[in-house]
């Protein structure tokens, strides 16, 4: 079975370690916050100027002055801090943020990422994505393995305008966990019940498969 978006988020949450400062992008990455293990302390960074983002407020407790980068009303956790947008991207550029998780339309087997613009369609802008991918120490892409037409999103080269070059370290899709290596996508884990063959068929870029590929542990 291919993973649901929630299960992708659940698998990504296992990459978070105690003490990590993490920036979660919009979409599947946002869901990761729901699966952070209770025995570790993780600070979520929201690039509009907050470290220590908490869950959505209870109804009636929304504060219009307290939102995340997706413009959703949120709360703060004990130990949180506010800052301006320059400092926010300063800490990202300086490599203080341990992990960035973001969505993508395409990823190449070199680690290039395209996620902001489709020629011919209304361009809304890159927001903070280009700053994040240019500087983050560790970038995990969360996405479906194929687009709605069934075409692979893991390509030899991105066809869409790039957001950043040679920056993605790991991809977690509904079918697999893959690392970016100098030989291309290396298959690390597969979704329960998904065959290596199916992943091969749905990966257009170079794919490295070592002997045994374990199934993901989602327990």
């Amino acid at each position: 079975m291919s993973l649901t978006k929630e299960q992708i988020a659940q698998r990504i949450a296992r990459e978070l370690k105690d003490g990590y400062y993490v920036n979660l992008g919009i979409g599947i990455p946002t869901l990761v916050a729901n699966y952070i293990q209770s025995d570790i302390a993780v600070f979520l960074q929201s690039e509009n100027g907050l470290l220590g983002m908490g869950p959505f407020p209870f109804e009636g407790e929304e504060d219009p002055d307290l939102i995340n980068a997706g413009k959703q009303t949120i709360t703060t956790l004990p130990g949180s801090a506010f800052f301006d947008s320059a400092m926010s991207f300063g800490m990202i550029r300086a490599g203080k943020v341990d992990l960035t998780v973001l969505g993508a339309m395409e990823v190449s087997d070199l680690g290039d990422i395209a996620n902001w613009k489709i020629p011919g369609k209304m361009v809304k802008g890159m927001g903070g994505a280009m700053d994040l991918v240019a500087s983050a120490k560790n970038i995990i892409v969360a996405m479906m393995h194929t687009n709605p037409k069934g075409q692979s999103k893991l390509l030899p080269r991105c066809t869409l305008p790039l957001t950043g070059v040679r920056c993605v370290k790991k991809i977690i899709t509904d079918l697999a966990v893959l690392d970016i290596t100098e030989n291309g996508f290396e298959l690390i884990e597969r979704a329960p019940g998904i065959s290596v063959e199916e992943i091969k068929n749905k990966t257009a870029g170079r794919l490295v498969v070592r002997n045994e590929v374990p199934e993901m542990d989602l327990t």
Binding site: P57, E61, E62, Q72
Partner: peptide, 16 residues
């Protein structure tokens, strides 16, 4: 006015 673009809330828990 302080308009909110994405009003997101969670359900209040029993007893709160």
């Amino acid at each position: 006015e302080k308009r909110i673009e994405q009003r997101t809330v969670r359900k209040s828990q029993a007893g709160q």
